[in-house]
Write a protein that binds this DNA or RNA. Sequence first.
DNA 1: GTCCTAAATTTTTTT
DNA 2: AATTTAGGAC
Length: 767
Amino acid sequence: MTDHKQNPTGISARAMQGTEPAYLKGLNPEQRDAVLSTDGPLLVLAGAGTGKTRVLTTRLAHILTTQKAWPNQMLAVTFTNKAAREMKERIGHLIGNVVEGMTWLGTFHSIGVKILRNHYELAGLRSGFSILDDDDQVRLLKQLLKAEGIDEKRWPARQLANAIDGWKNRGLTPDKVTEAEAYSFANGLGKKLYQDYQARLKTVNAADFGDLLLEVVRIFQTHPDVLKSYQQKFKYMLVDEYQDTNVVQYLWLRLLAQGHRNICCVGDDDQSIYGWRGAEVDNILRFEKDFPGAKIIKLERNYRSTPDILGAASGLIAKNESRLGKTLRTDKTESTLVSVRGHWDGEEEARAIGDDIEALQRQKEHLNDMAILVRASSQMRAFEERFITLGLPYRVIGGPRFYERAEIRDAMSYFKIVASPDNDLAFERIINTPKRGIGDASIQKMYNVARTSGTSLYVAAEKMLGTDELPAKARTALRLLIESFARWRKQVDALPHTELAEIVLDESGYTEMWQHDKSPEAEGRLENLKELVRSMGEFENLAGFLEHVALVMDRDTGAETDDRVNIMTLHSAKGLEFGTVFLPGWEEGLFPHQRSLDEKGRSGLEEERRLAYVGITRAKHRATISFAQNRRIHALWQSAMPSRFIDELPEKHVEVAAMTSSYGGQSFASSRFDSNTSFGKGSYDTPGWQRAQARKSSGDTMRASPKFIEGEMTASFANTPTYETGERVFHQKFGYGNVTEVDGNKLTVDFDKAGEKRVIDSFVERG
DNA sequence: GTCCTAAATTTTTTT
DNA sequence: AATTTAGGAC
């Protein structure tokens, strides 16, 4: 990158003096303070909806217009690519395309790679190292476990990957892992495996996600000259979502901030939801200690939500103990209560939400301004199915990712090997895809050679072309493949990369493989491959494309011009806002999630509560929380209790909606909802009371099934004796049909319209 | 080595 | 329920 020696903004400094710049207009006093306090450490505690992004972007614009720094002297870090993109865009609106000079605006990881690419040799890597994704990482570890003779059933590679990630997140290189911790995997082999893994990464010339940060920190720590050059470079530093930083990121920032000491961190401890990824809320709680003399500004004026939404969210988050404490205020007066609804099962929940959405749509509300925020992505399916039958347009944000599809990974593997042959994982993936007659046995032989000689698989394979270790058939196939790669590699600079990509897919026989495949998905896969090549065209070269995919992992969400309901997880909803928000699945075990409770105890619960807080505060006008009494998890039905979070919502901001009259167990559900006045204090006591009772009676954890709910369920089922083959039944969704088979409480019914389906007997009635 | 079937295993959130 | 893995037949 060359420095453009010109005024960074195009606006003359003279014009700025005297009159106040336009971008400061409309900021409240705290926001203005946060924008203007440019020098020295600053922590901005920005509650939900308090105009955080506006402050952030205005601050950057301000530093640039006042010429305190050139665009490339500013470091601005975000967590997601989306946030980075948005920030860039908004700065662009403020000060024009000067923002293009901000080469150090990006995610921790993308900035990490950039630094690492400049100093790869200090990390034991070679030029053009590749970035391993999650899947590659696990596959590599699997090999190491196998080589070590460790039972993969007892010690899954996935678990080791998590352990290593955890260590890396905490800034621990293998030598710094304590013996005690090393024992957490395979009786002490954890440390050795971590070491082996790192060594293997170097031979295959690759870095995993954790390395992108940890290796940089290590370089900074061991090479003061390198560190110093970056310290001098970054005159102003800005960190978004500071509450989500982990130990390495914290170390990374602190090392860099020791230069000019102009670091501004923006965050909200109440929105820290990435503890499972190593985030340390402590970082934000400790800011003043780390940066003595730091200024702290609280943004508490909320511009997003109504008083009821804010009240409900605040009441909930107040139950958390470890927080700095903020009080959000709003000037808004118009308000609707947060609605809480119970349903018989997940399908009914989806039906009710679908109805609501259609009703809102009739009132001319935009679907784009509505969102369904779920705890786990497995909840999404019910909504998708319902919306498809309704013909209601929706989009899933952060769903199954394009780049995780098998055909895309295969194709990408070919491209990766063209770019860097030492990528073992990629090579193994396609060495026999399409089938070339190179089987497991041959691959194992190659691995043995690779391991003993300390080379990559590709080099070992090349070597073995000249020996008779491999069967003749395999050797011939391998020779052909290696020669092809050599040929393609020669063309990298000669041909446009999209053209080369087509040649590779063609000549390798990969396209042909799918053309001859007669499975129904084959056509879609070929379509995806075309789409892949097309999207490559947006990048300058092959290397640029590969890097983008490694770091971003999903395609741009495309045009948001069409009006669709948004479906996403609570995690990916952070930072967004919608007029209407639906929050389904508020049930014990699902939300708060059982695993979170099991693994992290109270702190896990508090993180779940923060997640609930994030969910509610996404809403501008309306929020609807719901739970289902029964949910199908895999194949079996489980009865669930309403989430404790529902009880924690302050009564005065919540209305418990009447149950949508529907069908089946519905009637009993609504009765238990309505006839509760005899129990305890206050009129607002729906679901919570049940749970309290349940816990008292079972004396067990929250998962324990409440006796009386079971009782009622059985009672309700008892009224409906089992059906017999040939009987005529009616089903809410499928209509009338004849029972063709009975298996316990599962029936096979041949429906007049819908055809043969398997259903649970409690969902049909005699017709 | 390849292909087919049976069995086992999943059950959070993501750069 | 759906997907991945293991094992066995060819």
